[in-house]
């Protein structure tokens, strides 16, 4: 159950629109089913009342949309940001990707998002409705009158299982209060892979990455991937490619994708959320984050606007590359 209700959010957003502070709101729009929520720009109170949703399936991070949205008009846009989204928000500001003055950031408290894929693994296909019921989700299907009761904690999306922070890193106002930076276990999975033998690691990633269909969803959704022309789309880069033609191309794409956001990735988890093949892409990004923390000191991208990213910084006493590999667990 989310701390703040849809009703309260709408009321506040309506006020903001009425005050003329903002002329539009970037929020979540309801879909055909409970879980297929779409990012949408709302321009009126009526529209908000009819279509705005807030609940366990509002995973989409709006930070990246602000680049496009703020360029459209001089009026302020209100944006709803969950705690993890605010880190991306700050990171984009650090990189001067949009004008802070044109944004009114509304932080919403988040209790974690559910993963429909995990739900379907329990209930099967044919979901007709999902109702929030305290700490549970009641999932109704067209095959049964009675709902399947699922504990939300059992179907939390991957990134929420190891939530790094319930504290908003940026906001103009908060709805539902603020939380704390959490002592997250998000590097456990990475450590598990590091502990494997070289052959096991190779086999693991071979299995994961071979599913890639190069739809580019991970890249296009990533708030840190904001190049105007990606090397993979640029015929002059020498590495333009559209298809996972073989194992090499798969690895090339994913290593470069993760590397390019290394030090800038806030670990928002959008890449893994959107992957149609459910490749745990966040484990690549987290590896870089973990290494950066181990080699160059704790760093959380997007925590502070204007912080210097580790890859555009150095220390004379930095670890030598040959000593780095395998020394991640200091």
């Amino acid at each position: 159950m989310q701390k703040i209700s849809r009703f309260d959010i709408i009321n506040r957003l309506k006020d903001l629109l009425a005050d003329g502070n903002v002329d539009r709101v970037l929020g979540w729009k309801k879909g055909e089913f409970r879980y297929d929520v779409t990012p949408h720009v709302f321009t009126s109170a009526q529209e908000l009342e009819a279509d705005f949703v807030w609940g366990d399936f509002c995973g989409a991070n709006f930070s990246k949309y602000l680049i496009k949205e703020t360029a459209k008009s001089d009026k302020k846009v209100a944006v709803l940001l969950k705690p993890c989204d605010t880190y991306s928000f700050n990171q984009l500001l650090t990189e001067h990707r949009f004008d802070r003055e044109k944004v009114y950031a509304v932080g919403v408290a988040c209790d974690g998002m559910a993963d429909i894929f995990k739900i379907k693994k329990i209930t099967g296909d044919g979901i007709s409705d999902i109702k929030e019921n305290g700490e549970d989700l009641d999932v109704y299907t067209i095959y049964d009158e009675k709902p399947v009761k699922i504990k939300k904690t059992d179907v939390l999306s991957e990134r929420c299982l190891s939530c790094k922070s319930k504290k908003h890193a940026a906001y103009d106002e908060l709805l539902g209060g603020d939380g704390d930076v959490l002592d997250s276990n998000r590097f456990d999975e990475v450590a598990k892979i590091e502990a494997m033998t070289e052959e096991e690691r190779y086999a693991f990633w071979q299995g994961e990455l071979s599913r890639c269909i190069r739809c580019n969803a991970c890249r296009d959704v990533c708030p840190a991937c904001t190049c105007e022309k990606c090397v993979f789309d640029n015929p002059n880069s020498g590495m333009e490619n559209k298809s996972p033609a073989n194992e090499f191309e798969e690895k090339l794409f994913h290593i470069i994708r993760a590397f390019h956001v290394a030090g800038r990735c806030t670990d928002c988890g959008e890449c893994s959320r959107v992957c149609p093949q459910r490749i745990p892409l966040h484990l690549l990004n987290r590896k870089f984050i973990k290494d950066i923390n181990a080699f160059y000191g704790e760093y959380q991208a997007g925590e502070v606007v204007g912080s210097r990213a580790p890859l555009v910084d150095f220390d004379k006493e930095d670890v030598e590359p040959k000593n780095a590999v395998g020394k991640e667990d200091k």
Binding site: T38, H40, V41, R214, C215, A217, D220, V221
Partner: peptide, 16 residues
Amino acid sequence: AGLSQSCLGCGTCTFV
């Protein structure tokens, strides 16, 4: 305009 406004321009729909 409204339908396409949040389209990421990825190729997921076309590839599946």
